[in-house]
Design a protein around this nucleic acid. Structure first.
Length: 195
DNA sequence: AGAATGATCCTCT
DNA sequence: GAGGATCATTCTC
C-alpha cells in the first residue's frame, strides 16, 4: 500500500536546496533480510559544492567524498564521531559535489525492528536525528554508494499531499557555514531533531 | 558539560 | 608512513 515507485534520477539532478525541500514528506525505505523499515522524511540539510565550507567536498575530492562527485540519486553514507553513520542523497549533475543530509524521519513501518536496533521503546527517539535514523534503519557504510532510484535503499514519493509549514534555519552541528539557511523541516513534526 | 570512539585528512618527515 | 586535529552526534552524568 505504501509507496510503490522510487523517485527518479531526474528528481535528484536539480538544485540541492530544491531537492531538500522536495524530499520533505517523501518516504525513505530500507529492505534487509531482517525486515523492511520505512519513514517519512521531516528534516533535511543541503551541502552544496566545493565553495560550501561545511560540505565534505570543500577541500576537494578524496576517497571518502568521491560519491558526491558522481551521478545524482546515489547514497553517500559516512562514519563520524567514532560511532555514527549519516545518510545523504547525492544531488545535481555528475561532476558537481552536492548532497542532501537526511536528518530525521517519522517512523511508518517496521517499528518493532527499529526498536530492536535502537535498543529502546520510545518511538519519538527512533529516528529524530541523523545518526538515530541510520541506526534504526540499519544503514552503515555497507550502504554507501547505492542507487536510491532502485533497490533495497530508496526514497519514494508519498501519495498524500504534504501537510504543514516548511521552516528554513541554519545547519546544525557544523563549524563553518552556519549562516546559510540550508536546513529545512516540517514545523509541526514531533520527529524533527532538536536545537 | 563532557565522554565515547575511530576513520579520515593534513602536515610534516 | 607517523602523529595529531577534526568531526554534518548521541547519551549520560
Amino acid at each position: 500500500m505504501r509507496p510503490i515507485k522510487p523517485l527518479a534520477r531526474s528528481f535528484y539532478q536539480s538544485k540541492t536546496l530544491k531537492v531538500a525541500e522536495a524530499l520533505l514528506g517523501a518516504v525513505l525505505v530500507h529492505a534487509t533480510p531482517e525486515g523492511t523499515v520505512a519513514g517519512r522524511i521531516v528534516e533535511c540539510e543541503a551541502y552544496v559544492g566545493e565553495d560550501d565550507p561545511a560540505c565534505h567536498a570543500s577541500r576537494g575530492r578524496t576517497a571518502r567524498n568521491g560519491i558526491m562527485y558522481g551521478p545524482p540519486g546515489f547514497s553517500y553514507v559516512y562514519f563520524t564521531y567514532g560511532m555514527h553513520y549519516l545518510l545523504n542523497a547525492v544531488t545535481e549533475i555528475e561532476g558537481f559535489p552536492a548532497a542532501v543530509l537526511i536528518r530525521a524521519v517519522e517512523p511508518l513501518e517496521g517499528l518493532d525492528l527499529m526498536a530492536a536496533r535502537r535498543g529502546m521503546e520510545d518511538v519519538r527517539l527512533f529516528t529524530s536525528g541523523p545518526a538515530r535514523l541510520t541506526q534504526a534503519f540499519g544503514i552503515t557504510t555497507a550502504q554507501n554508494g547505492l542507487d536510491m532510484t532502485a533497490g533495497p535503499l530508496a526514497i519514494h514519493r508519498d501519495g498524500r499531499k504534504r501537510e504543514g509549514e516548511i521552516v528554513w534555519t541554519g545547519r546544525v552541528g557544523i563549524r563553518h557555514g552556519t549562516e546559510k539557511p540550508w536546513r529545512c523541516y516540517l514545523a509541526e513534526s514531533p520527529y524533527v531533531s532538536k536545537r
